[in-house]
Design a protein around this nucleic acid. Sequence first.
DNA 1: TTTATCTTGTGAAATCGTTCACAAGCCTGC
DNA 2: GCAGGCTTGTGAACGATTTCACAAGATAAA
Lengths: 208, 208
Amino acid sequence: MKHIAESTVRRLSDYLRFLEELEQQGTRTVSSGELAALGGTTSAQVRKDLSFFGSFGKRGLGYSVAALSKSLREILGLERQWRVAIVGAGKIGGALARYSGFHQRGFHVVHLFDAAGALVGTVIDGVTVKDERTLEATLAAEPVDIVLIAVPSDAAQAVVDRVVKTGVRAILNFAPVPVHVPSTVSLRSVNMALELEFLAYALVNHTR
Amino acid sequence: MKHIAESTVRRLSDYLRFLEELEQQGTRTVSSGELAALGGTTSAQVRKDLSFFGSFGKRGLGYSVAALSKSLREILGLERQWRVAIVGAGKIGGALARYSGFHQRGFHVVHLFDAAGALVGTVIDGVTVKDERTLEATLAAEPVDIVLIAVPSDAAQAVVDRVVKTGVRAILNFAPVPVHVPSTVSLRSVNMALELEFLAYALVNHTR
DNA sequence: TTTATCTTGTGAAATCGTTCACAAGCCTGC
DNA sequence: GCAGGCTTGTGAACGATTTCACAAGATAAA
Ligand SMILES: NC(=O)c1ccc[n+]([C@@H]2O[C@H](COP(=O)([O-])OP(=O)(O)OC[C@H]3O[C@@H](n4cnc5c(N)ncnc54)[C@H](O)[C@@H]3O)[C@@H](O)[C@H]2O)c1
Ligand SMILES: NC(=O)c1ccc[n+]([C@@H]2O[C@H](COP(=O)([O-])OP(=O)(O)OC[C@H]3O[C@@H](n4cnc5c(N)ncnc54)[C@H](O)[C@@H]3O)[C@@H](O)[C@H]2O)c1
């Protein structure tokens, strides 16, 4: 398949959320214009996004809410369950481990690692925090699909390197530093400080 | 000034981080190529990004690390201090309130609001959690520049509307739902579930 | 069956962002 | 003070994404 823009995938994820809401409300069909209004985009954008993956609507009618959300879940890889490990069980790692939103979407935290003796052995949301020195052995015995990095910035790259070496192919980094991975590994970063800086920039340059 | 792409601002923020590191290491000058290597981009991109704001380098030599980081801090609005409020002092709101990284960059949490009686009155990192019903009065008496939204998804839009009404012009949303604001307000969202879905998509479509 | 109305799917055009390529400027060494 | 070597700043080319605009398919009503 040809390359899909990141922005398209992000919007598909939004559409899916709207469809799930509509499904709960009992709505049967929806038009590209209605989805666009919910997501703050245009109907042409919605149709173009979907057109990369096939043809899901009925002309004159719109899209079946149930059928389209099923298709989107397949496209986004949400039809299956994903095993997740979190490295760093501090403030943000702990909050993530306790967050139920991930579970609901099929992401299950199966391992938590930390370096601090005080944390190792404690139980967070049913998962016992393991010593980070057991990372390689644990992931070899019970592999995961995705690893979240929630360690201090200066430890981030080293932890990422170790994780990559165990064969993990998807990493979500919360440390506010760019980390590097081989091109076989998918990496995303959540950089909250950056978002704040963006807002500061917008305030200073008061352009919308 | 003409409109600057979001991707440019994001990269400026990265460059600043690298410059601060270089400054600490005692490096005096840096070329666009060196900055590009650190950030995983190209030298032309670095020069183009900077060119939107002026001319900061010396041909044949590169950029003065100290001067460029000062300029970037000015451009990004980091020369001043920013007052921040957090609405929702639960798992993620609490982690954010306790996070020292924001403070270091000039973002100061001055108010914390929550709806839960058990949390109201508790002190997190020196800030007392206030009843969310006092939001309007508190922000009128002691205004903030930026508000972080860390309440459950179904409360997010309502809280945003109230915050907007108090005159706040910058909002960072952590609820995994798109929220709408007037075009006079800057809005950014941190959507961790979305990032996980992106990784799931990449794993399923094993492209790179 | 025909007509009126609605909405999709998609080439083509327009816009936006990145990369190229090079003239111009600065520094060092002679 | 001039030559040689580097590096910036920036139009122009390119590539990617968004928007436009419309033919074609579907439904409902007469
Ligand atoms: N707290 C937040 O709201 C927040 C927001 C944005 C970004 N971050 C980033 O997330 C990261 C963690 O921040 P935090 O606030 O949770 O800090 P924290 O100090 O509360 O937690 C970090 C944890 O990582 C553990 N650790 C350190 N080295 C380790 C290693 N090699 N292996 C395993 N565990 C290790 C520490 O023992 C600690 O428990 C930082 O990079 C921070 O910049 C945090
Ligand atoms: N915990 C995480 O790691 C995480 C990750 C991603 C996104 N989020 C999102 O962040 C938001 C908060 O999640 P959480 O895990 O911290 O949940 P939480 O239940 O721990 O915290 C939410 C807090 O908001 C308070 N609240 C509810 N309505 C309010 C209102 N109207 N005004 C003020 N406070 C109100 C509640 O009393 C509670 O303390 C949710 O939208 C969640 O989806 C959380």
